[in-house]
Design a protein around this nucleic acid. Structure first.
Lengths: 145, 145
DNA sequence: TTTTTTGCAAACGTTTTGCAAGAAC
DNA sequence: GTTCTTGCAAAACGTTTGCAAAAAA
């Protein structure tokens, strides 16, 4: 849903300077199907930028998150980022534990959940974790080796 | 479901020494209705133990988690602990953002969720966040002051 | 030329570790 | 007496900050 240009556009229109690093970040997230840890982002970026510093990656991730370009989710292993979902419909995710790839779930459990009147609901989280087709196949192949 | 004695028993039966600190921890979690951050645990424990060190609290939380006495959950604000749910039925939680109190939700969204055949589900997470009766009242009272 | 962004270094908060003294068994 | 647990100190880790140099506008 998000092209590289759209991401760059939305950063530029908010007064951010479009640096090479930010272009690369836009490309990375536009092409990445799932969640990325800051360290993974740093390592990817490091391939293109010799003297890259971790804190710049962090700063840019935070800026992009504050802009609404990225969304941040807490996993057991720590914070991860992905492109903010642009879909209009409220939805949830199936997340591959191996590759981080996410797939939308249109069903929302709140429809069926009985909440007491005296509990004021603010938000909810529904996530399904497992292994996607590709990663199941790899795993099977590896164990047969 | 967990009494102090049951917790202590299950620690002793696994070869752990029953120290004063561990007794106090058992009491704290047996009587606490919701999630506690390590810092909160440390602060509570500090009232009873003069020269208490943070790392001992951490070690004990981890040991109790490995034993299955506690369960650990990642929130935006960091890791928190609570007694491991002993209920036989699979269930989820409503969690108060103010006091950390948890309430069970018997409904499980997986019943209704269409998962593609080629995605191998390992686990899922369904959590409802909001404010419980008591905390809504406090908030209302505070804003009217 | 002005303002933002970057890399560096250092600080910060949380969590983990090695070790010797102390406590539980 | 043996083994586990504790407190201390220090390290490790992820994340944030201040600052001067460099780059974008």
């Amino acid at each position: 849903m998000h092209t590289i240009d759209e991401i760059i556009q939305s950063m530029a229109s908010r007064g951010l300077r479009i640096t090479d690093q930010r272009k690369t970040l836009a490309k990375l997230f536009a092409e990445s199907p799932g969640y990325l840890a800051p360290k993974e982002v740093y390592e990817f970026m490091g391939k293109s930028y010799a003297g890259l510093s971790f804190d710049t990656v962090y700063r840019n991730l935070r800026v992009m998150e504050e802009l609404g370009v990225l969304e941040q989710v807490m996993f057991e292993e720590g914070v991860k980022f992905k492109l903010h979902c642009r879909e209009h419909d409220h939805h949830h995710h199936m997340i591959c534990l191996q590759c981080g790839h996410t797939y939308p779930i249109t069903y929302c459990p709140m429809e069926q959940t009985a909440v007491p009147d005296d509990f004021r609901v603010v938000k909810h989280k529904f996530e399904v974790f497992g292994y996607c087709k590709e990663c199941v196949q790899e795993e099977t192949a590896a164990s047969e080796r």
